[in-house]
Simulated scan of single mutants.
Amino acid sequence: MPPALLKAFTAEMTAARTPGPTPQRWRAIERAHILSQPWPWPHTHTHGVMLRLAVRDRDVWEFLGQLVRLVVAAPGSAAGNYPDGNTGRTWVGINTPMPIPADLAALLSQAGVAMQP
Rank of each mutant, 00 (worst) to 15 (best):
residue 90 T to E: 11
residue 103 D to R: 14
residue 108 L to Y: 01
residue 103 D to Q: 10
residue 42 P to H: 10
residue 113 V to T: 11
residue 37 Q to Y: 05
residue 35 L to A: 03
residue 115 M to A: 10
residue 28 A to I: 05
residue 22 T to L: 11
residue 115 M to G: 01
residue 98 M to F: 04
residue 87 T to H: 02
residue 96 T to A: 14
residue 13 M to E: 11
residue 100 I to M: 05
residue 50 M to E: 12
residue 94 I to D: 04
residue 83 P to I: 08
residue 5 L to V: 07
residue 80 G to H: 14
residue 50 M to T: 04
residue 63 F to L: 15
residue 7 K to Y: 09
residue 83 P to K: 08
residue 84 D to I: 13
residue 56 R to V: 03
residue 54 A to N: 01
residue 64 L to F: 06
residue 77 S to C: 08
residue 93 G to V: 06
residue 9 F to T: 02
residue 51 L to V: 04
residue 83 P to L: 08
residue 50 M to Q: 14
residue 61 W to P: 04
residue 27 R to T: 12
residue 48 G to W: 07
residue 94 I to M: 13
residue 13 M to N: 01
residue 54 A to W: 09
residue 36 S to R: 00
residue 79 A to Y: 09
residue 36 S to A: 15
residue 13 M to C: 14
residue 92 V to K: 10
residue 6 L to C: 00
residue 88 G to Y: 00
residue 13 M to R: 12
residue 21 P to W: 00
residue 75 P to I: 03
residue 96 T to V: 12
residue 20 G to R: 07
residue 80 G to F: 13
residue 73 A to C: 06
residue 106 A to M: 06
residue 21 P to A: 15
residue 114 A to F: 00
residue 70 L to P: 04
residue 116 Q to N: 13
residue 25 R to V: 07
residue 44 T to H: 12
residue 49 V to K: 09
residue 57 D to Q: 11
residue 45 H to D: 11
residue 21 P to C: 03
residue 37 Q to P: 01
residue 4 A to M: 04
residue 59 D to T: 07
residue 36 S to F: 01
residue 9 F to H: 14
residue 95 N to C: 11
residue 104 L to E: 14
residue 58 R to Y: 04
residue 117 P to K: 10
residue 17 R to W: 02
residue 64 L to N: 03
residue 2 P to Q: 14
residue 6 L to H: 12
residue 53 L to Q: 10
residue 20 G to N: 05
residue 77 S to G: 15
residue 34 I to N: 00
residue 59 D to C: 08
residue 52 R to S: 13
residue 23 P to Y: 10
residue 35 L to M: 06
residue 67 L to T: 13
residue 39 W to Y: 15
residue 105 A to G: 02
residue 29 I to Q: 02
residue 100 I to Y: 05
residue 62 E to I: 03
residue 77 S to W: 10
